[in-house]
Design a protein around this nucleic acid. Sequence first.
DNA 1: TCAGGTACTTACTAAAAAGTTAGAATTGTT
DNA 2: AACAATTCTAACTTTTTAGTAAGTACCTGA
Lengths: 112, 112
Amino acid sequence: MEKNEKKILPCDDKCPVKASLSLLAGKWTMMIIFQIGDDVMRYGELKRAIPSISEKMLIQELNMLVANKLVSKKAHPEIPPRVEYRLTDLGLKTIPIIDKLVEFGKENLVKL
Amino acid sequence: MEKNEKKILPCDDKCPVKASLSLLAGKWTMMIIFQIGDDVMRYGELKRAIPSISEKMLIQELNMLVANKLVSKKAHPEIPPRVEYRLTDLGLKTIPIIDKLVEFGKENLVKL
DNA sequence: TCAGGTACTTACTAAAAAGTTAGAATTGTT
DNA sequence: AACAATTCTAACTTTTTAGTAAGTACCTGA
């Protein structure tokens, strides 16, 4: 048993990194979650908060997040329409990930 | 000042989320970092640890990580070649991100 | 009546990312 | 002499992702 000392546990389909990324890996996904945080945000507010996102990507990502139960949506029956998005309990559990991402970015990448 | 109560700080190019993702967002990037952890790993070990990655993507990502100073590379002048990869100090600082990703995946996504 | 704000939807295009396949260089082993 | 192991490299194709531009519907205020 001198050789092959290193135990490698291969990343298969049950890899938790892969599983988490399957929900969060989109170009805009984490930025949207970051912006919502523990607030309520309207579609238009998110649009202004992420100026470079296209409307298509914004609703597409929001719909995906709602479908995956990270975000909940409440449409108020008013004119003009008012639609509110907030993180679900599951979505709130992704906040620590984003926090660490922010911390890393601030401390190592974003020049002051 | 009754209207427009909510302060929105737009995500521009200095957004730390965006900055971090510019390094880490690739399909395989975080899985490679996860596998290296605080060990030393050879190219071939990584290949076996992530069986579904193609060789092209593996070296491409490793080169990218080396170029971005998250990973250091040491090639031993031997035959057959032995090349070792490990996380740099900067790379080690991404571990908390991956830890949270793993935690979220394990607790909420990966079925037992 | 006409632009403006709200929250989308749809069709099409372009760009980015990843996959496939083949091969190179070296030396030891059979 | 052929083959295996190791760490790549390069050309090409496919798939995935994102961007663009236009349009819908509703009501309000000018």
